[in-house]
Design a protein around this nucleic acid. Structure first.
Lengths: 329, 329
DNA sequence: TTGAAAGCGCTAACAA
DNA sequence: TTGTTAGCGCTTTCAA
């Protein structure tokens, strides 16, 4: 943490030019045929005095900031905060840092944030796109900004994405609930949202229902409304349809469901939720979940993005990561 | 997202010099006595063509990056992810961005991260210090790097911090458990940690116990061990001491406690936890909590830091934010 | 194999 | 009231 040392200090100390130091620093000793002895000497001296290049100057010159912009729906949600943690870890291993923001699924805010990060010259974007973002994203692509979508994608936009296998996750979960006569009526709660992950989960549910020649009971909730309102809607649905099991499309919906059950003191149906939550193993009765593979998702996201940044050619990786069922009876 | 425009483009378009544009851009029209007409004209043109200054060049020149480094213990923990969200929001309102990392309470990793962020020229640090960091922090202070600690502080280091009133939170919670003969024996679970927040919570518990002339039952858990091990220790303690209520020093300890109770099928004592968790309102029986005021904490953290950055004089704000008890019977 | 010097885009001291 | 220009610290072309 001593006083900042410059590359010119190193050059002066050793009686050589900054060019040579710069070449050595950037692993170009071989290419520029700098003697091994000198290379070693410079490297040693740099380590000894603890020289660290000024990243700003470097970035200004090279146009690379080694910073990735991460826009998630809500960093306060356990799924996203755990994802953020893993993404950050993987990025760090590739020599990148993360600047992040929560979008709250707000289209305008997201657009502003993208512009802001773009102005800050992030090397690439990782984002959970809210609806209506096709144009903005397409714009980034047209400008050759590396990016990868996750959690959901935009069918209209041809780009990298990493998502969970939402369809099969929901399909298997629903199939499980219907198997061996475990339950006759399986309800499904989802959101008023056309995002792909929600659509796929719904389709997975429908496929299982159809396979089983069963009837669908579907209720969508508007998350912009007050929590009380949502809870009361869930209660109503449960009472009216008398489903004996329920599949919630997200963990926060499941939590609202539990609140409804508790508040109105009704009997708890068998519950399955998309996404895990600490609560699910401890609640009585316990709650099964479709678990997303956070480690693999994060790894794929970062490696796709880094690959696109380093090999400048535009690749389009569409990666679908399987989910696992955590059955808790 | 059009092709990048430079300040020199603006100057050329308008037939004036870059200096004038720069002054106007940096709100120095008044100071430099630039005519209002010209100022307006420039501002309009800038808006029209969508010019955005290159932050890197600006930063290189001014030494200000408008980026704050946030180091939290674990971004995957709800308390920290919610704090991060609020901090980010407040920072954004002050025109700052956040780069963040999780320290995992690892001394070496934290030191590396601080060095890394320092090399990236963050304008200031927000951090939850792990133990053994006195020297590194003192070093930052000696180098006039603005910083603010939160969640805990280092008694040996004279610097800004924002923490919750851990002592009174724990005191009131324990007092509540002991009041009106609610319980005779109140146990306390904490961590092997000398961090101030843990120490203060312990002292709050002790004070209440002493006030009540009751006996203390204290068990510390080592979080580096496997979860199974911790759960089994908690179980042992509960069975041997037959306490009728328990106060957990953190929410993840409380969750381990619930797992122990569930796994071994023992009767649940009355439970109080420091920190909230979604689970606590839904679990049966419900669990009371000492709730930290995340909004106020975040606001104070950011405003202290921004104040220190802008007024360069070294202030030392020591802010203690009250907690509230969420009683759930 | 190495060095001199231009230039990345901006701010601000100094000059006019 | 506005313009000229040095310089922030680094990379890299071109020359030696």
């Amino acid at each position: 943490m001593k006083k900042r040392i410059l590359i010119s200090d190193i050059a002066r100390d050793l009686g050589i030019s900054v060019t040579t130091v710069s070449f050595i620093l950037n692993d170009k000793s071989k290419e520029k045929r700098i003697s091994e002895a000198l290379t070693k000497k410079v490297l040693n001296h740099i380590k000894k005095v603890g020289y660290k290049p000024n990243q700003l100057a470097k970035s200004l010159r090279t146009g690379q900031t080694k910073i990735l912009g991460l826009l998630v729906e809500d960093i306060g949600n356990t799924f996203f905060s755990n994802m953020a943690k893993q993404i950050e870890k993987n990025a760090y291993e590739h020599g990148y840092h993360i600047i992040y923001c929560s979008t709250d699924n707000d289209e305008t805010k997201t657009k502003e944030l993208i512009q802001l990060f773009y102005d800050r010259q992030v090397d690439g974007f990782i984002l959970t796109p809210s609806e209506g973002l096709q144009e903005t994203i397409q714009n980034l692509i047209n400008n050759n900004i590396p990016l990868v979508l996750f959690d959901r994608y935009l069918p209209e936009v041809e780009t990298n994405y990493v998502v969970s296998d939402n369809f099969n996750g929901a399909y298997e979960a629903t199939k499980y609930l219907l198997a061996e006569g475990k339950s006759q009526k399986v309800g499904f709660f989802s959101l008023y949202s056309n995002q792909t992950q929600m659509r796929d989960r719904l389709e997975g549910y429908m496929k299982a229902i159809d396979d089983h020649k069963s009837q669908a009971y579907i209720k969508k909730i508007n998350m912009d409304e007050k929590e009380e309102e949502a809870i009361s809607l869930i209660h109503e649905f449960l009472v009216e349809n008398r489903v004996d099991s329920v599949f919630f499309a997200t963990n926060y919906l499941a939590i609202l469901g539990l609140k409804a059950i508790k508040k109105y003191g009704i009997k708890q149906p068998k519950i399955f939720s998309f996404d895990e939550h600490t609560l699910f193993g401890l609640h009585e009765p316990r709650i099964s979940a479709v678990s997303q593979d956070i480690h693999t998702l994060a790894k794929e996201i970062v490696s796709s993005l880094v690959r696109e940044i380093t090999e400048k050619k535009k690749t389009t990786n569409k990666i679908v990561v399987p989910c696992t069922l955590k059955i808790r009876d």
